[in-house]
Amino acid sequence: TNFTTRQLTELEKEFHFNKYLSRARRVEIAATLELNETQVKIWFQNRRMKQKK
């Protein structure tokens, strides 16, 4: 998935405060950013892996 700059900014901002999202928060973010819930979930999984390295 190619994310827009706005989407990436918002996802990174959320990640800064929360490494893990509740389902409710994931649904909320997905709706706000016009993404589906799975895209948000996978982005967070990938971002956590990236941070571990």
Rank of each mutant, 00 (worst) to 15 (best):
K53Q: 06
N18H: 11
R6Y: 14
R25P: 03
E37G: 03
M49Q: 13
K19S: 14
E34R: 14
E34M: 09
K41L: 10
T4F: 00
L35W: 00
R23M: 09
N36R: 08
Q7A: 06
K41N: 11
Q7W: 00
T32I: 07
F17K: 15
T38K: 14
L33T: 06
R23L: 08
F3S: 02
R25N: 04
T38Q: 14
L11K: 00
F17Q: 15
N18S: 12
K41F: 07
R48L: 15
S22T: 15
M49G: 08
S22V: 03
K52H: 14
K50P: 08
Q45P: 05
N46D: 11
T9W: 07
V27F: 11
T32M: 14
L35K: 00
S22A: 04
K13I: 00
A31M: 08
Q51C: 11
L33K: 00
K19P: 15
T4V: 00
R26T: 15
A31V: 05
N46R: 08
E12R: 03
L33E: 03
K19H: 13
R23W: 15
L8G: 04
K13A: 06
L8I: 12
T5A: 14
V27C: 08
R25T: 00
E34T: 05
T1A: 04
K19G: 09
R6L: 11
A24E: 14
R47V: 00
R47F: 04
S22K: 06
E12P: 00
H16W: 02
V40G: 03
Y20A: 06
L33M: 05
Y20W: 11
H16Q: 15
E28T: 06
V40R: 03
F17L: 14
T38D: 15
N18P: 00
A30C: 06
E28P: 00
Q39G: 01
T4M: 05
K52P: 08
R26H: 00
F3L: 13
Q51S: 13
Q45W: 05
N2P: 06
F17P: 00
T4N: 06
R48G: 10
K19A: 14
E28W: 05
R23G: 07
L33R: 03
N18L: 04
Y20E: 14
E12L: 05
Q45D: 10
E10N: 06
E10L: 12
R6N: 12
N36D: 14
L8H: 06
R25S: 04
F44K: 07
V40K: 03
T38R: 10
K53H: 11
V40I: 09
M49C: 07
Q7P: 01
Q51P: 08
V27P: 03
Q7G: 01
W43R: 06
N36M: 05
W43L: 01
Q51V: 14
K53A: 07
T32G: 09
T32S: 13
L21Q: 06
K53P: 11
R47S: 06
W43T: 01
M49P: 00
Q39R: 05
L8M: 13
K50C: 09
E14C: 06
Q39N: 02
R48W: 10
R48E: 14
H16T: 15
E12Q: 01
Q45V: 07
M49N: 08
A24L: 08
Y20P: 14
F44P: 03
R48Y: 01
F3T: 04
R26V: 15
I42A: 10
L21H: 02
K50T: 12
H16C: 13
T9N: 13
L21T: 06
V27A: 14
K53F: 08
E34F: 09
L8R: 05
R47C: 00
Y20V: 14
E37R: 03
E10Q: 13
Q39A: 12
L35M: 09
R47K: 07
E28Y: 07
L11A: 01
N46C: 10
N2C: 09
T9R: 13
Q39I: 04
V40Y: 01
H16D: 15
F3R: 00
T4C: 01
K41H: 13
R25M: 04
K13E: 02
R26D: 04
F44A: 01
K41S: 15
N46V: 07
E34I: 01
A31L: 10
N18E: 06
T1R: 09
R48I: 11
M49E: 14
V40M: 01
N36K: 10
V27T: 12
F17R: 15
F17T: 14
T32P: 03
T32F: 11
E34C: 11
R25A: 05
W43G: 05
I42E: 15
A31C: 11
K13M: 06
